[in-house]
Computed example of a mutant assay.
Amino acid sequence: MSEWGSFIDETPSGQSPPPPPDHAPAGAGTDGDDGWGSFADETPAAGGAPPPPPSVPPPAPPRPYGVPVPSPEIAASLLTEGETLWAQVDGAEAVLGSGCRVAVVRGDDGEAGAAADGFSGWRPVTVVDPAALTVRLVPLDLAEPPVGTATPVAELYTDPEPYTAAEPGRVGVFPVGQGPDLDALLHRAQEEERARVRAAVEADTLRAERELTAAKAESRERAEAAEQRAAQREQRAQEATRRAQEYAEQQIGKARDEVAQVVWQWQDRAQRAEAEIARLRDELAKAEQAGVLRHVLDRRRRAGGGRDQGGMRGA
């Protein structure tokens, strides 16, 4: 099927071909023409309008209401060289799905020209120069495929094995006296139920034992952690008590030193006061002795003076 070509394979990845226009382009026939393409040399049907001359540009595809046609600058900025698009081709001009007009060039010399195969309408084109808005038509492979290349359509849709309707099935008579032993079935069902219950009980027991073991381990860990915290608190309390005792002993020692210093100072002052008292007593005794001597001398002097006066009087 490669000789026939495929529009789908020629469409670039991530892009989908635009839908066909709602109305047939100018120059297309009205008898069995869907507007997707037409031959350039096709004569119009009776009563149809003649095709427009090559100088008339192809009509723009219908645009949704309120959507403006982009400017050539915007269209050129969105195109990429080598990109394959779908366009409505008519001669040497084409209209993209956005409504922007582009020029069609031939692949050999790059000059403007119509399609060599004569097909117009919606067909894939390749962007040659985005800045110049020029495209090249993708050639269509119109050769007949050789015999044996493809499978005929009739053979594709032929059922190789004809369908035969089967006879309707009917329910047979009730098998009296046939079938398995019901007692054995009930007994096996009871044994299976007992085994299931026993397995469930064992599983529950194992799960309970695991949970109990985990709970004991968690309780043990919590108890050990609590003991460690209590030991740490006790150690901190003992350390605080020891520091308090040391501080109290230091304060008591300082108080004793201060008391001893004060006692020594008072003792020193008392000794000095006693020495001063003794000195003052000695001075007082000396002063008393000096006063007594002075008194005695004064009396003697007085007594001697009286004698001198009496002698002088007798003389």
Rank of each mutant, 00 (worst) to 15 (best):
W4Q: 08
S13V: 07
Q15T: 10
S16G: 00
S16I: 03
D22V: 05
H23N: 01
P25D: 02
G29F: 07
G29R: 12
T30Q: 04
D31C: 04
D31R: 05
G32A: 03
W36L: 08
G37Y: 12
D41Q: 10
P44C: 15
P44M: 13
A45Q: 09
P58K: 01
P62Q: 11
P64D: 13
P64M: 15
V69K: 06
V69L: 09
P70N: 03
S71H: 06
P72Y: 07
I74F: 10
A76Y: 11
L79P: 06
E81L: 01
T84E: 11
T84I: 15
W86F: 15
A87I: 11
V89Y: 14
D90H: 08
G91V: 13
G91F: 15
V95W: 14
L96M: 09
S98D: 09
C100T: 13
V102T: 03
V102M: 07
A103Y: 05
R106W: 15
D109P: 03
A115M: 07
A115T: 11
A115Q: 02
S120M: 08
G121Y: 09
R123N: 09
R123C: 14
P130D: 03
A131H: 11
L133A: 03
L137A: 01
L140G: 01
L142F: 12
P145D: 08
P145A: 08
P146A: 12
V147N: 00
V147A: 09
G148Y: 14
P152K: 06
A154H: 04
L156W: 11
Y157T: 09
T158G: 01
D159M: 06
E161F: 14
A166M: 10
P168T: 03
V171C: 11
V173E: 12
V173H: 09
P175D: 13
G177C: 13
G179W: 15
G179F: 15
G179N: 14
P180D: 06
L182T: 09
A184I: 13
A184S: 13
L185P: 01
L185N: 02
L186F: 03
R188G: 08
A189S: 05
A189K: 04
E193M: 08
R194H: 15
R194V: 12
R196S: 08
R196T: 05
R198A: 07
E202Q: 12
A203R: 10
A208I: 05
A214C: 08
A214R: 12
A215G: 05
A217D: 13
R220A: 11
E221N: 02
E221A: 08
A225G: 04
R229F: 01
E234N: 05
R236Y: 03
A237K: 05
Q245G: 06
E246A: 15
Q250W: 15
R256Q: 04
D257K: 07
V259H: 07
Q261T: 00
V262I: 00
V263A: 02
W264Y: 00
W266T: 00
D268Y: 02
A273W: 12
A275E: 14
L280I: 07
L284G: 00
Q289E: 01
V292E: 05
R294E: 13
D298F: 12
G306H: 04
